[in-house]
Design a protein around this nucleic acid. Structure first.
Lengths: 112, 112
DNA sequence: ACGATCGTACGACGCATTTCGTACCGACAG
DNA sequence: CTGTCGGTACGAAATGCGTCGTACGATCGT
């Protein structure tokens, strides 16, 4: 019997399982890249609600899932809220220099 | 008569215009990542036909376009063929360390 | 117990991406 | 000139992705 409800338990991939194409695809989206930059700019974990997002809660949940399932972020409950943080060590161990290079990448110089 | 043909002149973005999210999205695809690895493994430019692709010509054209328009590769005609090469210097200048980190990223360790 | 807050599940919509078949064009070999 | 080879243009199909509304669940303050 199939329960229609699948109860997506929050899945975090193991460090060794991370696929570079998944990480790149996850980062290759302006909204998610913005989230990652925001997470990088703040020490420790952030609650989801503290991220300045221009999107609805449902959409945000989707992006958090993509980031989490690609191994970029980790989530854990914090009371009635949820905390998100970068998996820096895991990413650096698996893909040395990748996250740093992405975070160092600046937007294109504007022209007047 | 056919004037529906739009004659997509091969577009190469300027180095300063490159967007990191476009580059990441382009690399976040197994086929294209494979092409980039292949290009990196060979010195200088390769003709398109020399890349070992499991896909049809039409599909290959699509991926070459994505790589070119994101600024990852450069193309130029070489007789009846076409040569593709990595825009290493431009990428390194715009996004230092990014391409190297991606190319260093190994597939996950296999388990027996 | 009640309501407010924070996030998820599900279903839906529109748009983009990936893939291909087919027709075509340009360059070269004969 | 004709054929072949390398690649593109176009159109179509399938799939995936980003977005949202709505309904729900869990947690905390009162």
């Amino acid at each position: 019997m199939r329960r229609t409800i699948v109860l997506m338990a929050t899945y975090h991939p193991d460090p060794e399982q991370l696929l570079v194409e998944d990480v790149l695809a996850a980062l290759g989206n302006p909204v998610r890249l913005g989230i990652v930059r925001e997470l990088d700019a703040s020490p420790g974990a952030r609650t989801c609600g503290s991220l300045p997002l221009e999107i609805t809660k449902a959409t945000a949940t989707h992006h958090w899932r993509v980031l989490r399932e690609s191994g970029i972020t980790r989530e854990h409950k914090a009371g009635r809220s949820k905390a998100v943080s970068l998996r820096r060590e895991d990413l650096d161990a698996r893909f040395p220099g990748l996250l740093d290079a992405v975070l160092r990448a600046t937007p294109p110089p504007r022209e007047p």
